[in-house]
Write a protein that binds this DNA or RNA. Sequence first.
DNA 1: AGGATCGTCTGTGCAGCACCAACTATTTAT
DNA 2: ATAAATAGTTGGTGCTGCACAGACGATCCT
Lengths: 169, 169
Amino acid sequence: MFHLVGRLGHMSAPSPDPSEHRSGALLDHLARRMRLRSESVLAPLGLRPRHLVALTVLRAGGGTSQQALATILEMDSTNIVGLLNDLEAEQLIERRRSPEDRRRHVVELTEDGAKRLSEAECALAGAEDEVLGALAPSERETLYELLRRASATTPVNCTEAICAADETC
Amino acid sequence: MFHLVGRLGHMSAPSPDPSEHRSGALLDHLARRMRLRSESVLAPLGLRPRHLVALTVLRAGGGTSQQALATILEMDSTNIVGLLNDLEAEQLIERRRSPEDRRRHVVELTEDGAKRLSEAECALAGAEDEVLGALAPSERETLYELLRRASATTPVNCTEAICAADETC
DNA sequence: AGGATCGTCTGTGCAGCACCAACTATTTAT
DNA sequence: ATAAATAGTTGGTGCTGCACAGACGATCCT
């Protein structure tokens, strides 16, 4: 299914060791390129790249508490507040008090939010074409799928923050 | 409002519309996660994430002028100077005047630079394990290959700079 | 000779973000 | 019941990455 790496055949002296293939720098590089283009494209929609990240996480994760969001995004929770304020001001998300624990805010994407996110993704097609121009559509889909699965994991040492959101411990 | 109906070409897609699958936000998200971990891991080596990006580009691209580097990294050329100063101070890169155009500096990775880059990549294995933990080794290799190929392209608005490097406009 | 280009240096300003402190509302533990 | 911990909010501070502008020397191209 996911073969498409057919050109691993040439092994010569310099770097025959795939164990050194770290994606970090490449990830950084491409993310920057994408972000630079996204900013101008997203501006008319009243969004910034980091808003899009939050919306994407919320769409993937359903209702999450703000601290869970802070954990997932690996941002300080005080800065999450401002981020969510922006999004709530435009009715893209909703903060509802959790019935089980009334200290918590359950953050969820609104219909408007999902729509805006869709529009934004649509508007970003051009930017992505520029940055991922070297990849065929099927490869982009593969890339998307890999990124999506990787970003679906919660950081931390597993047990703790998952316990907060889930109940399986 | 807009329906953006999916063009169906895939069967049994778990997600509704692949045409909306934009990788930008995911790229951003994962790059951030990786960068946060990289910083602490790279610190003992006297490097920062952006140094690693530059070194990676230099390894991939061979000798490049500084403005070419600015184009590739999509950074302001004045900030490239400082970045390269850092790297040159540790003898990780070399600036040599170009013989054809003595205004230019040809920037190249030194042996030390290649070695340090290797060490850094090795040291980042743990960080990558955390961030890409959801992916199998073969999937990570696929991801690496896709990112590498995508980042190998020069930015630009299509026709122009390609013409500059190519022949027929 | 004159203008354009590459690199360098300096300085300015803005934005993202971590961190601290204080406060409220609520839950949990003693 | 009282104390302590937790979720969120607000305000403030400071660092850092980065774009941008101005000025300069060196070099190339007419």
